[in-house]
Design a protein around this nucleic acid. Structure first.
Lengths: 213, 213
DNA sequence: ACGTCGATCTCGAAC
DNA sequence: GTTCGAGGTCGACGT
C-alpha cells in the first residue's frame, strides 16, 4: 500500500482500522477477535503489526511520521445491551407481561411443541391462547416461519382461538407484510427495557456514564 | 441509538462514521457523496446532522459531552491520483512514450475510427501498429471490449500487424485472461507517475508530506 | 438511472 | 467448532 496520511484506529478487541480522508470503508483493516498485536520501532519508524490465526494473515502499519496520538477508554452503553439476551427478554416478559400487552398471562415458557420450543406461551385478556416468538434483534423471515410453525402445531391441539405474536426490537423488510398475510401480529420489544426489568443495576451505571466522570 | 462513548469521524467527502470500542463495522454511518452536513448547538448539546437525498435519510449525532476534537487535512497519495485524469495519462504517454514501452512512437491521439476514438495510436520498435486504450483506474471487461472493437476497426484498414494494449493502473478479475484469449496485451500504467510526468509540482509536494513539515 | 453480484466482506445465530 | 443467512451492507459492473 502506498504511503499517505491516514487515520489509524486500534480498538479494544484488537480490531484495526486504517482510514483515508474519504469513503465509508477502511482502506485496510483487521477484524477483532483472535488478533495479536505487536509494536516496535525500527529505523526511525513506528511499526504496528496485527495478526490472526484463521485465516492466517497480518497487517503491518508503518508510521514515518505521527501527527497525533490519542488513547481512550470508551465506556459504551451498547455493551450493556448485550446483557439483554433472548433469554433475558423472555424472563422480562414473564416478569412483566404488560411489556407484551395489557392483561397478558404467561402460562409456560420454552414449551415443547412438535417443531421445537415455543419461547413464551400464554393467554390474552379474552381467553385466547397466545404463542410468542421473541427475537433479541431485528426479526427476519425465518422468525416469522418459526412462529407460523409453532402456531400450526398449537392449533392442532386445541379448539380455542390461537394468536401468534412476534416480539422483537424491529423487523426486516417485508416481515410486517408477511405477518399480516399469515394473520400474525408484531409487538415492538426493546431489549434495553427488558434488561431494566430484570435488573436495575445497569440503568444506574448508564446514568453515570451520561453525566460524565 | 442509545448513548455511549463513541468515536465520530467526518470525512472530506461527507462520510460520517460512528465507531464503538469494538468491531470492524461502524455502529452508525452515512456513505460519502451526496451528503449535506449541518451543525448546531441546542440545550447544552452539540448536534451534527448529515443527510442525503437518495435514499432519503439522515443521521443525527448528539454530543452530550466531548472528550476531544481534532480537525485534520489528510494529504493522501490516493487523492493525487485523482489529479491524473484519463486525459492527463494520455498526455503523459505522448510526452514520455517509454511509460508504455521502450521505443514506442505515438502517431496520433483521440484518433477517430469507426466505433469511436482511439486513445493513443502509434508504432512499436518493429514497425507494428499499436492501439492503446487507457483507463485511469482498474480496467474491467468493458475496457477490453472497447479495445477489441478499435483493434478490429484498425485491422480492417491496414495489412500491417496491429497490437492492442490496455494501459491501466490495474485490472479486474478475469481481465488478464480475457486479454490473453483475444491476443491483447496489458501494460501497468501508474496514474501518479503520469501526473509526475506532466507536472513535477505535485511530486515535490508529496515528498514534503512524507518528510513532514 | 436501476438491478445484480462479489467482498480480505463482517457479524450473528443455528446446528 | 462449522455452516448459513442477513446487512441501512458498500462498490463494481452491466443494462
Amino acid at each position: 500500500m502506498e504511503p499517505g496520511e491516514r487515520i489509524v484506529i486500534i480498538k479494544a478487541d484488537g480490531s484495526l482500522l486504517v482510514h483515508r480522508s474519504t469513503g465509508y470503508e477502511p482502506v485496510n483493516w483487521m477484524p477483532g477477535g483472535n488478533t495479536f498485536c505487536s509494536v516496535q520501532t525500527k529505523e526511525q519508524t513506528l511499526q504496528i503489526r496485527v495478526q490472526r490465526k484463521r485465516p492466517a494473515e497480518a497487517v503491518n502499519v508503518i508510521f514515518d511520521e505521527i501527527q497525533f496520538v490519542a488513547s481512550l477508554i470508551l465506556s459504551d452503553a451498547g455493551e450493556f445491551s448485550l446483557y439483554a439476551s433472548e433469554e433475558d427478554m423472555q424472563k422480562a416478559v414473564l416478569l412483566k407481561p404488560e411489556l407484551l400487552e395489557e392483561r397478558f398471562k404467561p402460562i409456560a415458557y420454552e414449551k415443547k411443541v412438535e417443531p421445537g420450543f415455543v419461547d413464551v406461551y400464554g393467554e390474552d385478556k379474552d381467553g385466547k391462547f397466545v404463542v410468542v416468538e421473541i427475537k433479541r434483534r431485528t426479526a427476519g423471515k425465518e422468525a416469522v416461519m418459526q412462529l407460523a410453525r409453532y402456531l400450526e402445531a398449537v392449533r392442532g391441539r386445541t379448539d380455542r382461538e390461537v394468536r401468534g405474536i412476534l416480539a422483537a426490537p424491529g423487523t426486516g423488510k417485508d416481515v410486517l407484510r408477511t405477518l399480516a398475510a399469515l394473520g400474525l401480529e408484531y409487538k415492538h420489544l426493546d431489549p434495553r427495557k427488558c434488561a431494566e426489568t430484570i435488573t436495575r443495576v445497569s440503568t444506574r451505571k448508564l446514568a453515570d456514564f451520561l453525566k460524565g466522570s
